[in-house]
Structures are given as C-alpha cells and as structure tokens.
Design a binder for these strands. Sequence first.
DNA 1: GCTTTTGGCTAACGGAATTAGCCGGAGCTG
DNA 2: CAGCTCCGGCTAATTCCGTTAGCCAAAAGC
Lengths: 189, 189
Amino acid sequence: MPRAGLDPAAVVEAGAALADEVGLAGLTMGLLAERLGVRTPSLYKHVGGQEDLTRRIAALALGQAADAVGGATQGYAGRDALAAAARAFRAFVLAHPGRYAATIGMEPAGPDDPLATEGLRLLDAFTAVLRGYEVAGPDVDHALRMLRSLCHGFATLQSAGAFQWSADIDESFEWLIAFADRGLRAGGG
Amino acid sequence: MPRAGLDPAAVVEAGAALADEVGLAGLTMGLLAERLGVRTPSLYKHVGGQEDLTRRIAALALGQAADAVGGATQGYAGRDALAAAARAFRAFVLAHPGRYAATIGMEPAGPDDPLATEGLRLLDAFTAVLRGYEVAGPDVDHALRMLRSLCHGFATLQSAGAFQWSADIDESFEWLIAFADRGLRAGGG
DNA sequence: GCTTTTGGCTAACGGAATTAGCCGGAGCTG
DNA sequence: CAGCTCCGGCTAATTCCGTTAGCCAAAAGC
C-alpha cells in the first residue's frame, strides 16, 4: 500500500475546497478521505478531528480573505479603497462559501491561535480602509464593527440565498458601498 | 404509559427553547425527547424529522422577530423607529440565538411556506421604518437589504462572540444606528 | 361499548465520528 | 547494506444520532 503523501496542510486545503463544493454541513470525514484517496481513520494522523479540521479551515479562510482584501485595496484610498475592500470580501465569500462558513462562531483559543492571528490580519485590512476617512479615536472601533457587520451580513445573507425578491443584488451592493462611504464621510468623527 | 399530550407546536416550541440553550448544533432529537419526557421516536409523530423541525423553528423565530420589531416601532417614526427596530431585532437574536440560527440559509419551499410568510412579515416591519425616510423606488429594496445586512451581521457576529476587543458593544450598536440614520437621511433618495 | 385513530413504545438499521491496535515502507545509523 | 525506528497507512470495533418498522394502549367518535 503506497503512501498518499498527505500532511496537515494538504488535508486542510482539500477540506476547505470540499466545503466550498458541498457546503460546510456536507463536509464529512468520510467524504474528505475518499477525495484524498485514503480511508477515513487515516485523516486522524494529520488533524485532531472534525472540530480541529474546521478550526484550521476557518484560519485558512481568514488568512485568504485578509490577503484578498489587503491586496485589493493596495494603492487606493477613501471611497475607492472602501469599494475595493467590500467587493473583494464579498467575492471571496461567494467564491468560498464553505470555508467562510467555517469561520462563523469560531472563537480563538488564545492570542497565539492562528484563528486570532489571521482574524487580526483581516481586521487590519479593513482598518487601513478607514485611514482614508476622518475617523479617529473610539469611532474607529465602531466603524470597524459597522463595516464588518455590513460586509459579513450582506455576504452571508446572499450566500445563504436570502435576497430573493426583485432588485439586482450587485446593484444593491454598490448602493451599500455608496451608503457606507457617505456615512463615513458625513459624520465619522 | 400515560400520554404526554404533545403536539407539533409544543415540540417546535420546546425545540426552539432548547436550541437557544445549547446552540442549534447541539439540538439533538434525543435531547429534545428527553426534555419532553418522551422517547426519541415519539417525536416523529409530530414533526417529520430534524430538517422539518429546524424549518418550523425557523418559521417560529421569524414570526417572533417580526412581532418584536413590529411591536417596538409602533408609534415611532424616523430615527426613533429605526432605533427601536434595530434594538428590538438585536435583542431578539441575543435572547434567542438558537432559533435565529435556524433561519440562516433556510429557503422557503413555496409562497405558502410559513417560512416565506413570516419572513415577509419581518421584512414588512423594516419596510415600515423606511417610510419615515425619503427613500423611494428601487432604493427601498437596496435600503432594506442594507438594514437587514447590518442588523443580521451585527447580531450574529456578537452572538458568535466576535467583537472581542476593546470598545463597548452596546455603544457600537448605538453608533451604528446613528450611522444608518445619517446615511438614510443624507442620500437615501 | 366497539371501533378507529392517535400517540406512545421497543427494536433495529445505517451512517458518521472516533479510537485501538496492527503493519509495511521510508529514512536514518552503523 | 542490514537493521532500527517512526510515520502514515490500514482494519476492526465502539458510540452516538437520525430514522423506520411495527406493536399496543389510550383517547375519541359512532
């Protein structure tokens, strides 16, 4: 029996990809093992179990989201940066619904938890956007939470299939970006 | 063996309460049966199975949320109505995280599905809030999606334990209400 | 009062996560 | 190169959960 040459990173990456395909709820150890050409118990040599796997997928997703948002805003400021960040975030969630779903309700176990580290990177990417606005002091925290709520809410609701009625969803999202931009410029400080 | 006197509504209500206690993921047929003083298979005389139970819990949650939001905004308009609606919604989600979680990613099977009916009622409650602002035409749809994303995002993120750092969460939420109010008055139409 | 329906129950199955324990191959050591 | 060690597969078995089948008594209706 030849070895499959797996390692934790490969298992997590495959798990994330599979979650994107079949949904996080459909991600089963057996299905993942089959996808990797291996029997189910072999996975436990690389990850601690389903919860550990989900945590690692979540950390991966946060890191990738941070990269996407950070990269998209490079060279932009103000409204352009806000729009780029929001679009990049939504695009990421829609392209990778499974791994993003893994991040929901996941609390870091400590300051060194990759989940905390990568989450902070994503937060920093949004913080950078705020530098183009006159927001300071405690308002920065509030504005960050607002942006996070807005982006997270819209992306997850759309990914979940809410928003079924009339108007065009992309249009709504652009409207939402304009709305946030107005609000941040109008009374952010 | 005396009868327990259950009916679908009682099972769903107990399921919703249990979900609020132990989380939607922790809601198991066995646990619910035990809570109701009954053996597991007996539940299947009242609900079709776990998916059916979750759908019914979701419909219940949407209806209760609609009542809460609609009731809270009675007699208010403009910013007051917006604040009342947002606070009522968030309070509901924080008080009933399990049943609210059941609503996420749940698609109505048809126009007569209680899920659709109750969801529409909740939507109407928010639509009423917008009547106090000069928002019209397609902007109503966009504004509704914005409000929904904002409230849903904030409430679920807080309920999931995000927002761990410094600033006070209630303060952030009030800031967010003020932000939305500004935005809706500034350029809604 | 008898019959029908309803709502409990036990027993049994299937699928998923996980653990225990075996065993062969890869790689290092002499 | 021979042998030792460790790693990463495997099979087998356990447990827990959802679900179905089929039985039987209590309630409800004639």
